[in-house]
Amino acid sequence: MTVPQRVPVSAMFAYSMEVLGKPSVATFERYERHGTAREAFSYVAIAAAVSALIGLVGGLGGAIVAFLTTMLGFLVFTYAVYFAGKTFFGGTGTYDEVAFTFSLFYVPLSVIGALLGLIPLLGLLTGLIILVAQIYYGYLAVQSSMNIRDSGPAIITLVIAGAVNFVLAMIIGGIFAAILIGGAMMSGAGR
C-alpha cells in the first residue's frame, strides 16, 4: 500500500464541499484514501482554532478549553469508531481512513456551528441541526471508512463512539471543574 502524499487544506476543503453537497458512501469512498490522520488533524486544527477564537469570549481559559476539546473530541470519537468497528463488527478500514473521512464533514460543520452559535437564540437550533447532520454524515463515513455496509452495525458503532466520547468529556470536564474550583478556593483562602 502506498502512503498518500500530503493533502493541502485547499484540496480538503474541496473534498468537504463535495461530501457535504453529494452525501453518499460512494462520495466518501472516493476520498478516504487521499490522506492520513496527519492531514485530518491539521484540518481539524482549523476548526479548533475557530472554536478557540470564539472561546476567547470566556477569556484565555475558554479559548484553550475550546481548542483542546475540539482536538481531543475528534481524536477520541474517531478512534472509538475505528476500535468499535474493527473489534465488534469486523470493519476492515484503517484509522487513517476513519480520521480523514470524518474530518471532511466535521471541520466545516464545526466551523459553521461555532460561528452561528454566536447569534443569540440561533445557537441552540443550529447546534441541534449540526448534531443531526454530523450523525448522518458519520453514518455514511462509518460505512465507507470501516467498510461496514449493514445499517445496524454502522449505527451501533456510532452509538458506542458517542458514548465513549461523552464519558471521556464528562471526566475531562470534571477534572477542569475541579482545577478551577480548587484554584478559586486557594485564591480565596489567601485573602
Rank of each mutant, 00 (worst) to 15 (best):
I54P: 10
P23F: 11
I129K: 02
I179Y: 04
T2R: 15
T78L: 02
M1P: 15
G113S: 11
F166W: 13
M71N: 03
A37L: 11
A141F: 11
Q143L: 09
L109Q: 04
I64S: 07
T2H: 15
L104I: 08
I155Q: 03
I64A: 13
L68T: 09
L180Q: 11
N165Y: 04
A26Y: 13
A66Q: 01
L158Q: 07
I129Y: 04
L68P: 09
L128K: 02
A84H: 01
L68C: 12
V132L: 15
A11K: 06
M170H: 07
F13P: 07
T27F: 06
E18F: 06
M146D: 04
L128Y: 03
F77D: 07
G127I: 01
A189G: 10
M146C: 11
S24W: 08
A189C: 07
A84L: 02
G127L: 03
F83H: 08
G90Q: 05
A80Y: 01
I130H: 04
G188T: 14
E29C: 14
F28V: 09
P4S: 04
G90K: 00
L158H: 02
K86I: 09
T94I: 08
G113Y: 05
Q143P: 07
V25G: 13
I155T: 08
M17D: 10
V98R: 02
S24Y: 09
